[in-house]
Design a binder for these strands. Structure first.
Lengths: 213, 213
DNA sequence: ACCCTGGTAATCAAATTTGACTACCGAGCC
DNA sequence: GGCTCGGTAGTCAAATTTGATTACCAGGGT
């Protein structure tokens, strides 16, 4: 599973009703193009696909107010709200070695209640540890890891990365248990999308500060 | 760039001449299905595509000796050997946040000379550090990271993972500089593919030790 | 002789992803 | 008035990926 659906649902949900370009801008605002496959084509495709599947409701809308072709606006259906929470829980829980899904999940994390988030993250840690145990037991030959030659470095990389991921997750759990952030049902939710007409401070396209990355 | 082409080229090259099922088995032997998109469809697609592009040469071969449809065997062309080295260097150098490409590169690392590998890995570390500097400078607001709310945790995750990746790379550089493994031009190369008829000890399909992951 | 199972080798349709491209409008300039 | 430029909104073909499914043969039982 890629991160694109979760990201798109998250953006549309926060607007209530949004068109593709708006979603595209939000994801860029979140820096999602740096750590996920959030390209225009993927975003528009996901919107159409999810509309076809009943997760989003598409409204045909009059020609845009500011140039360009007519826009289609989308909003979540009830099925969409369920799908959103399902994807979010999955992103936080499963250890699939892909940072983009987890990142998208972190961005949406405050849409769940605090206690559940802690539960899910603990499941995540358990999943990582189980994965680590499985691969080390499965792939290390009886006569020592030297048998593998340089191939053992792949194992080494996996394990290093799993440990690092577990450590980060434990840190996050501690911060959340310590009262950080505002979760579902705890007050004014944090809004992370751009309002109509607001400029994107992180806009790409014509970077003016030289090219990084 | 995904890891599939590098993996497929690596397998075919070690056999000299190989058919799709053999490649598929090698990748499974390497555990590639655990950390990359090495599914049958992707493998056969990559073989055909690369044959079409002149990177591989396809031989039509008589019906298989052991059941199943007729097989096509492939071998690298000169362009293929160049492409292989190009992909390998790229995999070791660029920090694109995707473990699968790096893992594939590690698996093939001994096909380059030791000194070059050390160079490439140092470039990798430099790339990670540059990336880290760019994102921290770019995304942390002047009035402190608290402004970002829980979104700051995404940054935190990226940076944590970059640091962990850099640390691992430095460790690998040290081991290689310390004389570990046998690189190109240093003697008998390490062979990591299954010979014709050899059974795959890590075979999936019917796991007999319960289901992990 | 017939069927069933398991391994070998590959294909196919559908979904997704990529990267380049189109079309429209308003503002500024000559 | 005509022209180009940049921003807005989206489309499209090609490439890739996924997940299921096919086809073939050998061997063992009945």
């Amino acid at each position: 599973m890629s991160a694109i659906r979760l990201l798109v649902l998250c953006a549309v949900r926060q607007h209530g009703r949004a068109h593709g370009y708006q979603v595209r801008n939000d994801l860029e605002y979140w820096g999602a193009h740096e750590w996920s496959n959030a390209k225009p084509g993927s975003i528009y495709h996901a919107l159409k696909q999810m509309a076809k599947q009943g997760v989003l409701l598409a409204h045909e809308v009059a020609p845009s107010t500011a140039g360009g072709p007519p826009r289609t606006e989308y909003e979540l259906t009830d099925a969409g709200r369920e799908e959103y929470l399902r994807l979010l829980r999955e992103a936080l829980t499963t250890y699939d070695q892909k940072m983009d899904v987890l990142s998208a999940g972190i961005g949406a994390i405050v849409d769940l209640p605090r206690a559940e988030v802690v539960e899910l993250l603990k499941e995540r840690v358990a999943g990582i540890e189980a994965w680590r145990a499985a691969v080390t037991e499965h792939y290390v030959p009886e006569d020592g890891p030297e048998q593998l030659g340089h191939i053992g470095e792949i194992m080494n990389l996996w394990v290093h990365s799993a440990d690092s991921g577990a450590e980060w997750t434990r840190g996050l759990i501690k911060r959340i248990e310590g009262g950080a952030y505002t979760f579902a049902g705890e007050g004014e939710p944090f809004v992370g999308v751009l309002a109509e007409g607001e400029v994107n401070p992180y806009a790409t396209g014509v970077p003016d500060d030289g090219d990084h990355h």
